[in-house]
Design a protein around this nucleic acid. Structure first.
Lengths: 370, 370
DNA sequence: CAATTTTTGGCAACCGGTTGACAAAAGTTG
DNA sequence: CAACTTTTGTCAACCGGTTGCCAAAAATTG
């Protein structure tokens, strides 16, 4: 890498283009009145100067007509809009961002693009953003707090606001970011920063109650990454619910929150003597179930398994996975809504927004047959 | 939506920020010598003018030092770099893009972000792009040719080059795009446009040969979407391989290339009398297998199922899915490489780049027990 | 050491929008 | 109909880089 490329941004962007009209024919290669061409020979698109010339007004009037509703008379407005449509005008986002700093984009940082947990968050955020004409910029932190901080800093200079999904960095870093621009956090609660968190208690209570009703007495919780705020919340929930239902609960650690991590923890699960397991996420549950079945255990006859999140593929397994569903899509939607409202000058919600979790009963949990 | 928002881009971006040094401390909130502040009160970052002042040179010299290797003397270069490091300088991508048109980004259009088939392509493209200091911009077409064309046009104005993964639009549209800026296509072959396509024949031959060896005589192929170029290639491959192995092959249509579509086609599969099925993709295979098992069929004893692509989750099923793996990650990598080479003035490869497919044997295919 | 070539840095214009200040035009009111 | 207020459009500066052109400085050559 060149010595100076240090200063360049790199990475992965993705953009679902929504377009609600105004362009008559995207396929046409040339227009009747050719707009200004760029020196480098590419056919560039029309500018507000082209429109101004065609409409017989000043460029700044065009700018106002196109972005300040009500600032120009209806008559001029019409003329300009027609000219814009005729020239097939599209704003140059760079030119707009340069003086204003506004980019019509919001950032979203996730730990791992390929982790299905985040799909729904991304989807929800994207959809909600699109509906309000915002583009979502998503960065990956590769599960590393340092990378996450760097990515967040980098992103913050390019976007109007930032969403952190299951952040791994510490509270102070997040507050520092929030001091610069609007920030919303998903899956973690931080004083002074707007947060959207699934309220795990309802789903966990349902799960534990269901397990108790099926004759289980000893419960194991397979934890996720230590830095994850959620892994602690879920364990708290499990402990509390188990106490309430008079079950014993033990916490086991996993090496990583993946299918592989689930396989590796199978030994510990067996050793613990638990007949029911709740895991930090679905991937762990799937790996665990595979390994247990490979070792001859019957699910759910001998051991019940309950996952967390209800990710894509949770119903591919046999038996299909019982899981506590987090409404991840809704989290994404809520976070974007909060952020955009803040950008429009509204206050952030005083305390964390809670969304409900619920138990999805499938085949991997049930009555204990001894 | 406002009357003028027509002119705005909306959507979803994602960006994995890679950073290879130069910034000493991303966490520091204030620097010793405060750079220019923006009117709106945000702490904005240093500009080349700040650097120029600090280094005692002209801004244009700073610009050259930072982007034209070898244009300034080593001594000045050093002074400027030090000043840049001290001020924690980062280029303003908008300011750079405005005069040059170069954005250091490439576009990638996929049919559906949540379709796991594309994960590996995205990952591969992202990784390769990052390594060469390019940002990937990804757009979703929602499986619609029209949306795809619109998204492509929109994107093309913002990126330096475009990658189309499994495009649904027709050849002429793609050629029109390619006339404007560098374009590379994945999963489809188009004369005159650089393409990266998995060579399905090897993988399919292996699959069919393996099925024949296991005593199967009648084979069904469950096709994907009509517009998909690949669905035809795969059927061609299956037909040819079946003929070679003296199997009979029948083509069945699916309503959509999803788990649900797979479930729906189960009836037709049974009616066809085939004892082995190859599907257009893994999702179809998984749905089909679920439905057949639900109906009491034993896989693979009574019917063998082979999917396509080897997506995330293909091994969640019981039995795990046998599938023809497309090296999707490699496709992404290759496409980006071609594109970046073109951007550096190299010629596009004269004909399609082929990557190998291979059979991954898991539990869902095997000997027919009658 | 003068003449010539090459290297290096500065000037100024430009990319395509936005926006504060201001004046002309239009509308209101007494 | 004059005086005053409001609406509407123009001017010009600015955002932060890039780059062609030119002259000063340095290096090379005779």
């Amino acid at each position: 890498m060149g010595r100076l490329l240090n200063y360049l941004a790199t990475g992965l962007f993705c953009c679902h283009a929504v377009y609600d009209g105004a362009v008559t024919d995207v396929t046409s290669t040339g227009t009747a009145t050719t707009p200004t061409k760029r020196g480098r020979g590419e056919k560039s698109s029309a500018t507000i100067y082209d429109i101004a010339k065609l409409a017989g007004v000043n460029p700044s009037t065009v700018s106002r007509a196109l972005s300040k509703p009500g600032r120009v008379s209806a008559k001029t407005q019409k003329i300009i809009e027609d000219a814009a449509a005729e020239l097939n005008y599209q704003v140059n986002p760079f030119a707009r961002a340069l003086p204003t700093g506004r980019t019509q984009t919001i950032g979203l940082i996730v730990a791992d693009i390929t982790n299905p947990t985040f799909f729904d968050i991304i989807r929800g955020a994207e959809t909600t953003g699109s509906a309000r004409d915002y583009t979502l910029v998503l960065a990956e932190s590769a599960e590393s707090p340092e990378t996450e901080v760097t990515a967040a800093r980098r992103l913050l200079s390019t976007v109007d606001g930032l969403i952190l999904a299951s952040p791994r960095m510490d509270d102070d870093h997040i507050r520092a970011l929030a001091a610069d621009k609007p920030v919303a956090v998903i899956n973690r609660e931080i004083q002074g920063v707007p947060c959207v968190v699934p309220d795990v208690n309802k789903g966990i209570s349902e799960a534990v109650r269901s397990l108790a009703a099926n004759g289980h007495e000893k419960l194991a919780y397979v934890a996720g990454p230590k830095q994850s705020w959620m892994t602690a919340r879920r364990w708290d929930g499990v402990k509390a619910a188990a106490e309430w239902s008079k079950l014993s609960a033990v916490r086991l650690e996993s090496s990583k929150p993946t299918v592989d991590g689930g396989r590796q923890v199978a030994r510990d699960v067996l050793d613990s003597g638990a007949t029911a397991v709740i895991t930090y996420n679905d991937l762990l549950a799937i790996g665990l179930m595979q390994e247990l079945q490979a070792g001859g255990m019957r699910v759910p006859d001998q051991i019940s398994i309950v996952g967390f999140d209800d990710i894509f593929g949770a119903d591919f397994t046999t038996p299909a996975l019982t899981t506590v569903r987090s409404p991840l899509g809704e989290c994404g939607t809520r976070a974007v809504t909060i952020l955009l409202d803040m950008l429009q000058g509204q206050d952030a919600p005083g305390e964390a927004v809670r969304v409900e979790t619920e138990l999805v009963v499938r085949g991997s949990s049930g009555r204990l047959l001894v």
